[in-house]
Design a protein around this nucleic acid. Structure first.
Length: 586
RNA sequence: GAUCCCAUAGCUCAGCCGGAUAGAGCAGCCGCCUUCUAAGCGGCAGGUCGCAGGUUCGAAUCCUGCUGGGAUCGCCA
């Protein structure tokens, strides 16, 4: 039930009709036609730019074209008024019953209100978090985790077939370092004095239990053996332990991935996936032996000019061609990543979304180039970058340093402030803008805290229903009854404002999903929460506006339908963000 | 040297694939609790949209250059 989409379709139909009648040329670019709520409410309920975007191709003045469209719009049964305005806008007023029907639809549909078919069931792979399995997650990972999760929710709600995926970087040098670090803890567990952890190994205590577990299951079987003998089993145990820890951390934020994809698996077998990907590129003539210029601006002391195996990334907009093989003969991380994304494509995902931290920004062009190459242009990779999070406490930056031991883990933050503030505040900002996260402010229970403010609106709505049931009995005001309410009784401007906001929800979902911007949901929720608080306060001054009126059941019913629709939207939006929608505040 | 992101009110930020008089919160000032939760609401004041060009009927939004801030830059992941 998306009024804006409905009227966009109607406007397009009118334009096509005018083209059939010869008033307009055919083949106009109709996709640019937008029907949106006008910024100024005095302009009506809907506004469209149709006449302005088509005027040029139509060879007509915007106002003239607008008049033609207006003439047709006036014949629409739902339209009470249509007029050309300003430079060529068409402003439309709708019969109130259309908005009333949206409220009814929201009450009846409940959690499904706003669900959209926009995605048309397309398979989408959203890869997020993918933190290295070498230690606990820190706050830096948090934003990408929350963003990716909310984006996945949003895309699913907007009609996509979403798979949430985590890429485990379990190949390469870092996990070998992890294994060596765990081995040290293993020796420690067997009673050896290991002293300070050597430079270059992971010092954290979190590896102690891994060492103990190794000692328990393997006894001293690995003691005094060459690394070749123990590296693999120790690494495997350590990675499993780290992944278990990471999953626990994610669970604290109610994040769950459907697929955990192992980088190592891409290297296994005689015909490895990485080998296949490179062979694929090779067949496309995108691989050659060549030299690269040394990087500028970074130390060049250890630069070794040599011929290497390069992917022709520049053919797809990258700045330089990229190496696929390391000097030791192994594959680069990039080579694995190509194979990984090729695998996603082969699994049927034409739409891939990766969520990365800002520090990986420099990697975007090459991977997009690779995806275009390896899918023959049929797969698209969207990379969403989350900027850094600055952790504050009462306005003071919390400096983080592994060495100083002031390292803050994701778990510590979630345990301190709770998952709701973490999730909401991470989403109450565009993902590509840096974010300050103040541990003290996000737990404040006041209107200064948007998390609380929005949740409070939901609780307040629930409270209104409780009050109504006290006045009229527990069995009163079920879904069906509310849907039959006479909503024309809701004449106050504030009440109508809420109806119109509710009517915008489906449109919001589509645009937030299409733009991959879950923060729009958060801002919308704040706005609609505000509209409830305002109406509530109006009832303080004017008793006639109170939601529960124990002398007028019909009016109460209408108001509850309104509150019900708002509560539905609040609950739905909060669910998309992964934030709880409490029925009362404590 | 290069690439990417950012720059909007004193502060923190929205601004919906270009559109009508640029919005919200905080801070400041003035108001609202006998009454469904004041954990809230209303009002006032506050902006050369970093700078300079360009495209367009129309630019905070698109393009180019510059300034300032952040991130990154073969064989780490």
């Amino acid at each position: 039930m998306n009024l804006f989409a409905e009227y966009q379709a109607k406007v397009i139909e009118i334009v096509e009709g005018l083209a059939r009648d010869g008033v307009l040329p055919s083949g106009l670019g109709l996709s640019r036609i937008v029907v949106e709520p006008p910024r100024d409410r005095s302009h009506g309920d809907l506004a469209t730019n149709a006449a302005m975007v088509l005027a040029k191709d139509a060879g007509m003045k915007p106002r003239d074209l607008a008049e033609r469209i207006v003439g047709k719009l006036r014949q629409d049964p739902g339209v009470t008024e249509a007029e050309a305005a300003g430079p060529g806008f068409i402003n439309i007023r709708l019969k109130p019953v259309l908005f009333e029907n949206v409220v009814r639809a929201a009450v009846l549909a409940g959690p499904d209100f706003g669900r959209s078919a926009m995605g048309a069931g397309a398979k989408v792979n959203v890869e997020y978090v993918s933190a290295n399995p070498t230690g606990p997650m820190h706050v830096g990972h948090c934003r990408g985790a929350v963003f990716g999760d909310a984006l996945a929710n949003l895309l699913a709600f907007a009609g996509h077939d979403v798979t949430r995926e985590y890429y485990i970087n379990d190949a390469g040098a870092q996990v070998d370092v992890l294994a060596r670090s765990a081995y040290l803890r293993y020796r420690e567990a067997l009673g050896e004095e290991i002293g300070p952890i050597p430079e270059g190994l992971y010092p954290g205590d979190y590896l102690k239990p891994v060492g103990e577990a190794l000692a328990k299951t393997h006894g001293n079987a690995f003691l005094n053996r060459s690394e070749r003998e123990w590296l693999e089993p120790v690494r495997s145990v350590a990675i499993d332990a780290m992944m278990a820890m990471i999953r626990e951390d994610l669970k604290a934020l109610s994040i769950e991935h459907a697929v955990f994809f192992s980088e190592r698996s891409l290297h296994e077998g005689n015909a490895s996936a990485v080998g296949a990907a490179i062979a694929d590129l090779s067949e496309r003539n995108l691989i050659y032996q060549g030299r690269l210029p040394p990087p500028k601006g970074s130390p060049e002391a250890d630069w070794e000019d040599r011929e290497q195996t390069l992917f022709k990334a520049t053919a797809f907009g990258d700045d330089v061609d990229r190496p696929l093989l390391k000097s030791d003969g192994g594959y680069t991380y990039f080579a694995s990543d190509i194979a990984y994304h090729r695998d996603k494509f082969l699994r049927g995902f034409k739409i891939m979304i990766d969520v990365w931290g800002a520090d990986h920004g420099g990697y975007i062009k090459r991977l997009k180039a690779a995806v275009t190459a390896v899918t023959g242009g049929e797969g698209t990779l969207d990379i969403e970058i989350c900027q850094l999070v600055r952790l504050l406490r009462d306005g003071q930056e919390v400096k983080m340093s592994k060495r100083a031991g002031t390292f803050v883990t994701l778990r510590e933050v979630v345990d301190e402030v709770g998952p709701d503030p973490v999730r909401f505040m991470m989403l109450y900002r565009k993902n590509d803008a840096p974010l300050d996260f103040d541990l003290a402010k996000v737990v404040e229970q006041s209107k200064d805290n948007p998390v609380f403010y929005v949740q409070y609106a939901h609780a307040r709505s629930a409270s209104i229903f409780r009050q109504a049931k006290m006045a009229y009995g527990e069995a009163s005001f079920g879904q069906e009854e509310l849907a039959s309410a006479d909503l024309s009784l809701l004449a106050d401007e504030a009440e109508q404002g809420i109806m119109k906001l509710v009517a915008q929800y489906p449109r919001l979902i589509d645009s937030a999903a299409a733009n991959r911007e879950p923060h729009r949901v958060a801002f919308y929720l704040y706005e609609i929460a505000s509209s409830l608080h305002a109406l509530w306060s109006k009832g303080k001054e004017d008793a006639a506006l109170r939601f529960v009126n124990d002398k007028d059941r019909e009016l109460t019913k209408a108001r509850l339908a309104l509150v019900g629709s708002l509560m539905t939207v609040l609950g739905s939006g909060l669910k998309l963000l992964g934030v709880s929608a409490p029925d009362e505040m404590r």
